[in-house]
Simulated assay, not measured.
Amino acid sequence: MKLGKMRFGWLVFSIAAAGVLLYTQVKAQQPSFDCHDIDAGSIEAMICQDPALAVLDNQLAEVYRQAALKATNEHPPVLKAEQRGWIKGRNECWKAAEPQACVTSEYQLRIAALQATYRLIPLTATVTYLCDDQPGSEVIATFFPTNPPTLIAERGDSVALMYQQESGSGARYAGRNESLWEHQGEATIRWGYGAPELKCRRTL
């Protein structure tokens, strides 16, 4: 009788453990936002139905939480405004030829941007480039091992975030209106929309 009770107890425990594991797995596949009462066919609905996108959403939620802790004294407070703008842009992916790939890319770029901007991961290197042999014309680039790799470049009072691009040789990065391409210690930098290229070199 005792043996039967033990087996029954073990069976109940096993079923309960399996239920907890299943609940944990299902919960882990849910995004950070509530999937109830969302519009069918929307980008949010796609994220709720795609485990891989749900994982990315949770990753972004955690990275955003870390960034918010560092942005408490930010003036002006740009983090929340930028996040609202990013969500609006992400939801425009329904117009893309491949919406799922578009949403995936949006998440990856946003996570990388927050990690670099708020220094949430250790930097890889900091490099100073002297441009056109003018002592006052310098670009300081700080590199981060994000996915995709990023850099934050500073020139005077201006700051630019750039993402690594595919390149046949050297390392090429591009941002909104700026770009940096380095090959064997020499760099070509464009700073601003329509601006001429700067010929730069690494300083020792």
Rank of each mutant, 00 (worst) to 15 (best):
A18N: 08
T203I: 14
R119P: 02
R119Q: 15
L161Y: 05
E98F: 09
S105R: 12
L53D: 00
F33A: 06
I111P: 03
S179K: 04
E178T: 08
V55W: 12
N91F: 00
Q165N: 08
L60H: 01
A28M: 09
L130P: 02
E154P: 00
D34R: 07
I152Q: 09
V139R: 05
L3F: 14
L11M: 15
V63N: 04
M46G: 03
E44I: 01
F144I: 05
L3A: 15
A52S: 12
S167W: 03
E92Y: 04
Y129K: 04
K95G: 00
A195M: 14
W191H: 01
V26Y: 13
A141Y: 08
S158E: 14
C131V: 02
G185L: 03
S179F: 07
K95Y: 01
Q49P: 02
Y64M: 11
Y118M: 05
I15H: 06
D50W: 00
W181S: 04
M162Y: 02
I121P: 06
I15N: 07
L53M: 00
Q164V: 07
A61N: 07
A141Q: 10
I189E: 09
T128R: 12
D34Q: 08
C93A: 01
A160L: 08
P135S: 11
Q59E: 13
L53V: 00
I189W: 07
W10Y: 10
L198E: 11
R84Y: 09
A96L: 01
N73W: 10
P135T: 08
A101P: 00
Q134Y: 05
F143N: 07
M162F: 02
S167L: 04
P99H: 01
I15D: 06
D34N: 15
T142R: 14
L69G: 12
K27T: 13
W191G: 01
T24P: 05
E44M: 13
A187R: 11
P76H: 07
M46E: 07
A67I: 02
Q115P: 00
M162T: 00
K199N: 10
C200W: 03
A17N: 06
K70S: 11
R90E: 00
W94D: 02
Y173K: 09
K88S: 14
C48T: 04
V139M: 12
L11Y: 05
L130A: 12
R119H: 14
T146W: 09
I111C: 10
P149H: 10
A171T: 11
A16N: 09
Q184Y: 10
V26M: 14
W10L: 15
V20C: 11
W86D: 01
I43A: 00
Q164C: 04
S137F: 09
V12Y: 05
P148N: 12
A97H: 07
E106K: 09
E178C: 06
F33T: 07
D133H: 09
N147V: 15
D157N: 08
F13H: 03
K5W: 14
G175S: 04
R172E: 03
I121R: 13
D34P: 04
K95H: 04
S167Y: 04
T72W: 11
S169P: 02
E154T: 13
G89I: 03
A174T: 08
T104G: 02
Q184E: 15
A81G: 06
P148Y: 11
V139S: 08
Q164R: 14
I47A: 02
E178K: 01
G41T: 05
G85E: 12
A116F: 10
S169Q: 11
S32E: 09
N58R: 15
A54T: 05
W86Y: 03
C35P: 03
Y163T: 08
